[in-house]
């Protein structure tokens, strides 16, 4: 499994610098928590890595392969999978079709493999032939994770996967993220739920105004005065 590496990444939307000189890396089997206030640039970082927005400066590599300048489907084929802050399933298609689409980069999936993926994601009872849009919101989020795992990625980027989940579901999600990393997949976890980030992350990076504000062990980072300041003393 390969590591993901961002070096001095800059992204601008018109005049607005959404990311500036951001460097970070995610190792195989590691969970990197990415936190920061609203508008800090967390989603932009995922979009830049997966080719959805172009870089203004910097480089992104996975193993020996350059990602910057490549199109999203090429980056996905190199093993970078993602979920979306607003769920983006193929809603009118079935759960089976969503999982098959997720596996597209490496071949096809049989029903047993699909069942295993759904079981891992906590969707054991789901009917493979049900429309993805018929699932409850939290289950749609879980299916989106299962879809991204179907392609056996090297790196998985999760954009606020616990949004809209209750504490019990959030706890199960934390266990799922741990299990994914235990398979050797490097996970970048964006979350507003700082307790979850603390509980599962190996390291944490804090973004603020598009720049890295702090990086280090979860407990140390959330005690960093600059981080507390950025959050205005709240939440952390």
């Amino acid at each position: 499994m390969e590591a993901l590496r961002l070096e001095h990444v800059g992204v601008r939307y018109g005049g607005v610098a959404a990311l500036e000189g951001v460097s970070l890396h995610v190792d195989a089997g590691e969970i990197l928590g990415l936190i920061g206030p609203n508008g800090a640039g967390k989603t932009t970082l995922v979009n830049a890595t997966t080719g959805f927005v172009p870089l203004n400066s910097g480089t992104i590599v996975i193993g020996d392969a350059r990602l910057d300048g490549k199109r999203p489907f090429e980056i996905a084929r190199l093993g970078v999978a993602r979920t979306y802050q607003n769920v983006r399933l193929f809603g009118a298609l079935t759960i089976r079709e969503n999982l098959r689409a997720g596996a597209m980069r490496r071949g096809d999936l049989d029903d047993d493999a699909m069942r295993a993926l759904l079981g891992q994601a906590g969707l054991l009872e789901a009917d493979l032939d049900a429309a993805a849009s018929s699932l409850a919101y939290g289950d749609q989020r879980r299916l989106e994770i299962a879809r991204s795992l179907a392609g056996t990625p090297q790196i998985l980027m999760l954009d606020e996967p616990a949004a809209g989940m209750n504490p019990v579901e959030t706890k199960a999600l934390g266990a799922l993220v741990r299990a994914i990393a235990a398979q050797g997949i490097g996970v970048l976890l964006i979350e507003h739920d700082v307790a979850l980030v603390r509980a599962v992350s190996d390291r944490v990076v804090v973004l603020n105004f598009g720049m890295v504000l702090a990086t280090g062990a979860p407990d140390a980072v959330v005690r960093d005065p600059a981080v507390i300041e950025a959050y205005l003393g709240s939440a952390v």
């Binding site: 080719g51 999203p72 979306y84 399933l89 193929f90 298609l93 689409a101 991204s148």
Partner: peptide, 15 residues
């Protein structure tokens, strides 16, 4: 079909 449903998400899974 995925292209019809969501082109960006299709690219996101490598299509």
């Amino acid at each position: 079909q995925t292209t019809r449903e969501d082109e960006a998400a299709s690219q996101g899974v490598g299509i």
